[in-house]
């Protein structure tokens, strides 16, 4: 083999190798991409003083639905994903060191929690959530009683405590919509709370900023892996990222 052929073969081998590695990398990256667009909190006029510190304010609204049809029906949200239970968005962007008020419209039923720790509100301002106008620090969840657990899903934020970002933990149990043989039972005030429940709470975002994740602690996937399949094991349904910047 001539020197030029040897060089060409060597270059071709390197190019092929790099292509294979790059192909695998791009495929994996694409598979792990969040399928939803980002949703950023909107700034709200005014400030608030908490424990002697003044914080700017922001607000964000989310929905959680039994599927895309309910998202469209109740909130006019178009979701182009599988017909699984899901939040309206999965990648949330929040300003750092800010008092952010979340409003979550929840339209789904519920069954039971694997760990009743998650029926408790943790990490919100005052450790409470306002459920359809009433402040509560937890949602009843008695596993020993039939239909004793009133949790719909949870909105649980956590992340890696690193040198550059503070640890942050928030757990908000959502109140389930009761169901009967005909499906969901409309809530008491369907006009103001749509067909589901409206839950609001506020958090103080970490002053360091950082990359966090949120997920649902209610086993709401399909029967695979003890209800942790489908929506619970795919990006963009019952879990996502929280970018604090």
């Amino acid at each position: 083999m001539s020197a030029s052929k040897r060089s060409a073969s060597a270059i071709l081998a390197v190019v092929l190798g790099v292509s294979v590695v790059a192909g695998v990398g791009f495929t994996l990256r694409s598979a792990s991409q969040d399928p939803s667009p980002k949703l950023a909190a909107s700034a709200v006029d005014g400030t608030i003083d908490i424990n002697g510190k003044t914080y700017k304010k922001a607000a964000i609204t989310l929905g959680v639905y039994p599927g895309p049809a309910e998202a469209l029906k109740y909130d006019g949200v178009h979701i182009n994903k599988n017909d699984w239970v899901q939040y309206s968005v999965s990648h949330i962007v929040l300003p750092k060191n800010t008092y952010v008020t979340f409003t979550i419209h929840g339209y789904d039923g519920g069954e039971t929690l694997n760990n009743t720790y998650f029926d408790k509100v943790v990490g919100t301002v005052g450790n409470v959530v306002n459920y359809d106008g009433v402040d509560q620090s937890s949602v009843p969840c008695d596993l020993a009683v039939d239909n004793g657990c009133k949790v719909q899903h949870t909105f649980t934020i956590h992340g890696l405590p690193t040198r550059s970002q503070k640890s942050w933990f928030v757990n908000v149990p959502l109140l389930k919509v009761e169901e009967d043989d005909n499906g969901f039972v409309p809530t008491t005030n369907a006009e103001t709370h749509n067909a589901g429940h409206t839950m609001t709470f506020s958090v103080l975002t970490p002053d360091t900023g950082g990359e966090y994740v949120w997920n649902c602690q209610f086993p709401c996937g399909d029967g695979t892996y003890g209800k942790f399949g489908a929506a619970m094991s795919a990006y963009g349904y019952m879990s996502g990222k929280v970018t604090v910047a």
Binding site: N115, T156, S167, F169, F228
Partner: peptide, 23 residues
């Protein structure tokens, strides 16, 4: 100690009130 996807929770003894924590 209870492991959940993807949070740890810790339940302290009844003699301390049996409270739970994520730290």
């Amino acid at each position: 100690v209870v492991g959940n996807q993807w949070v740890w929770t810790f339940e302290y003894p009844e003699s301390m009130g049996g409270f739970k924590s994520e730290v």
